[in-house]
Design a protein around this nucleic acid. Sequence first.
DNA 1: AAGTGGTCTAGACCACTCA
DNA 2: GAGTGGTCTAGACCACTTA
Lengths: 248, 248
Amino acid sequence: MGTTQLESVPEPKYWHLKTVLSDALDSEFAVGEILPNERELAARFGVARATLRQALEQLELEGRLQRRRGVGTTVAPPRVGVAVGDYTHSWTDTAGDDAWQSVDSVETVPPAAIARLLKTGPDTRVHRVRRTRMSKGQPLAAELLYVPAESVPGLAAIDAPSGLARARAVLRELSRLELEGREQSVELGSARAEDAKELDRLPGAPVLVVTTRYAASGRTAAVAVATYRADTCRLTFGDPAGEELLAG
Amino acid sequence: MGTTQLESVPEPKYWHLKTVLSDALDSEFAVGEILPNERELAARFGVARATLRQALEQLELEGRLQRRRGVGTTVAPPRVGVAVGDYTHSWTDTAGDDAWQSVDSVETVPPAAIARLLKTGPDTRVHRVRRTRMSKGQPLAAELLYVPAESVPGLAAIDAPSGLARARAVLRELSRLELEGREQSVELGSARAEDAKELDRLPGAPVLVVTTRYAASGRTAAVAVATYRADTCRLTFGDPAGEELLAG
DNA sequence: AAGTGGTCTAGACCACTCA
DNA sequence: GAGTGGTCTAGACCACTTA
């Protein structure tokens, strides 16, 4: 048979479109450059706008593009390497290029999944501290830190009952603890409305959820749930010294 | 003014739909149960099918649902905790519930990003070993392991030049190395066509890409790029002993 | 062959940013 | 107010699984 099957596995249009756009990004566009708008691009490629958007969504998921409503679609910079599994840990606020900033603290009953990790009863109230991680003025992550009262026995009644001052007091007391170790897990999630706001994204945006269990004196001293922007972050574990290598 | 703004922040239909479905999954469905099909669900909620699909896509991203073409939409089991940052490491194939299986090996020029990590020249050929990680008969991850020739000096010329036998030979030699440490990073990606096939997903499915640099004798002995199914996997780092806790 | 999810179209309107 | 991306509709056809 002299015939050959040319299109035995016809790939979807949006998939082909994605590779075409990806190549164009490599060769014809610089970081930060604005792409033509979606209607224009769809017309240029001869597809419906919805199909084009499917390709753009994938590229955004891969961190190649950044889209902002009312503004346009720009070429994204390479993802930032963010140290997550770093044992040299400081609870109190940090400054500089990669900084944690306390937001506030309240006393509340944690979600069931958190209560299970903390091994507290289902209705036990704990401190919930909100923090934000910033880099170069951009928010990277929003964190909720759950701290049982037992972990911060020195917390004085005179400290503010909630708000930023309270958050700082809880973290100060927490830093007195001798940590024995911790376990972490990473999974994909979508940003809740509140997190999305802090992260400057739309609700439902893809995020990497890092759950950390801190152990001290044989107990779970605290549990942190940190929500990182999946489009801009590459989470790194291990020696910070080796990070330049992976940053490539 | 006796009037109050009821819909000052009207949330999108698909977002509201998602929370409604999510609640229904918690209360009315069991793991593995099949949902009504998309046309039926769309009609029931009075929305277009595309809108309903947007909600289902989010739930699938969060690991709540599993959709298979030609079959239907089922309620997904909780995500599997997969140890990734585990220092007690074995290169050779393992068996049992959580197992690595070698697939094949070829000699090739690595992608530029990998060559940079390996610090080899841009045209240096390396061994590329393919492996699959399985759990309970389901594929969890597809890995490409890049090994410079220097890391496996004992590799005999009599070994097969490629294929499964070669893969095993490379891993055997690699296991002779004394590892000094490693760095890892995790980021979101979308499955390439080949990975998608191995992972039993469609191309473009969301994956967690784990890049590991193995250090030995002050050099980079190997680089692994492992692609985990983001819908079914929760990656864990730290003491395996603590994993039951996080599994909750 | 019937039924499922996956792709694609050609429109419309909305929410947001910025000059 | 003009221009952007985000949401939504009501269809159509395709690829795949299962019986």
